[in-house]
Amino acid sequence: MHRESIPRVVTKLLFPFLLLFALYVQFHGELGAGGGFQAGVIVAATLILFGLIFGLRAAHLVAPPWIIETMIPLGVLIYGGVGVAGLLAGGNFLDYFVLDHDPVHGQERGIFWVEAGVLITVSSTMVAIYYAFAGRGR
């Protein structure tokens, strides 16, 4: 029996719902409050909570540092890739209208991928900074 059983149990219970809420904020951001930045921050806060309660080693198992560190530039690349995709499709940089036959659908698609890039970069940067702080002085 662990000494801090209540935080552990509550964290275990909340963990999937927090991630689900982050996804809701991410994909529902077009209709309600939220978007990539907010969802990324919620994902990061969830992982940091997990690390606080269960220890850094368990957090490293859930989200290995090398994946986190790859995700930081990956998000920016996705965002930039959307821009380049607009260029290749014959528009300007970050021009979403040309991404689909229907300009409005193109907008939606562009915004979706851009927000995905923001989510990946923001969440992984926060978690990476937390790892760096928590891993110091070992």
Binding site: G29, E30, L31, G32, A33, G34, G35, G36, I72, P73, G75, V76, Y79, G80, G83, F93, L94, Y96, P103, V104, H105, Q107, E108, G110, I111, V114, E115, G117, V118, T121, V122, T125
Partner: peptide, 28 residues
Amino acid sequence: ETGVPNVVTAVLASYRGFDTFGETVVVL
């Protein structure tokens, strides 16, 4: 123009796409 009802998201990601790209690079 964008089919996105949340104005904040539309402005951030579409009208001000360059700025948000810059922000993401700043985070990086």
